[in-house]
Amino acid sequence: MTFLEKQTDPTSPMHWRGNMQADYLYLSGVAGDKFFKHLMKNDTFLATKCPECNKVFFPPRLYCEDCFCEIPEEKWFEVPSKGSIKLFTIATIDSYGKKLKEPKVIGLINIDQTDGSLLGVIKTDKPDEELQGVHVEAVLKPKDKREGTLKDILYFKKK
């Protein structure tokens, strides 16, 4: 075995530089397409309800993962773009180890009238407060700026 812990330059042994090229076109899927198209034109969200167990899927799904049945067209419905904070954290360091300029509150918002939640940025004046259970509403981009992605939701704020 050759141990390299005393090497100050990891490029001093023979090596070859490469990268793993990976470019993607992710399609939102059949349910996702409907969800994001609705979001481009409306200030509400869409959800689906399982016809067998009545579980409400948000974001909407084409099928119930428990009953394993298809969710028909008539089980799609609108819900307000509001919800309660289920989980949250206050991030101070990013994925590259750098200190954020300002602490960022990231949380899971349980959307009203549904059994599902969405990851979102939470804007608040006092990031150290107890946020669990607090009711928030989505702040969306102006309609003419929306692109049909999750980024159309700018953040969630207290009502």
């Binding site: 399609l27 084409l62 099928y63």
Partner: peptide, 12 residues
């Protein structure tokens, strides 16, 4: 060549 369904929708 390309289907609109997500991988999980295809699996379903």
């Amino acid at each position: 060549r390309i289907l609109q369904e997500t991988g999980k929708e295809l699996s379903f």
